[in-house]
Amino acid sequence: MVRPQLSTVVAVSQALAAIQWFTLRVGQASALFVPLLMVTVVLNVTLRYIFSIGSIQLEELQWHLNAVAVMGCMAWAYQKDVHVRVDVFRNRMSPRVRAGIEAVGVLVLLLPFLWFVTVSAWSIFGYSWHLKEGSPMPSGLPARYLIKFVMAAGLSLLFLQSLAVLGRSLLVLVSTEPSA
């Protein structure tokens, strides 16, 4: 078996670490949008039930905040291995086999899926940006393209993170001996 040069391994590891760091930071920041959403809902309820004031912008803000939390953490969830797996057989697999499956999964399933979806997500954002799209409600929030950007960016970050997972799995494959 051909061993890759140590310097290559180090360079690749550093690149992977950079991606992981970025995903982590974006995820941690986005997660704070959950309590922010809670505060918004409480504020909205208070205004509506106590002061009889209804605000369409405040209502729309709720799903905007939720969308940031969801899209911002999707890549981080893959990094932390939170996404649901069926691990009936996985539990009995060697780390090498698992790394192999992960690599094939990224290459054959996740990347093709993300490729198609992310490309159209960016074009949806581009179109919305071009039109300076706002809420269909005249008194709603402006700049709906921001949230379309969040969608496209979140998917792209997952794309990036899946490359990191791929790299990590390949490193496991080349740096461990096949089990006898």
């Binding site: 509506r48 009889s52 004031i53 209804g54 369409i56 209502e59 729309e60 269909p136 409600m137 005249p138 008194s139």
Partner: peptide, 25 residues
């Protein structure tokens, strides 16, 4: 209409809001 929670969409929703209704989506 003041302070009433109503579901009204589009321009009509803005009209209702202008008259003090609390428009809900």
């Amino acid at each position: 209409l003041k302070g009433k929670k109503i579901r009204f969409a589009g321009l009509a929703g803005s009209v209702m809001a202008k008259l003090g209704a609390s428009v809900v989506l």
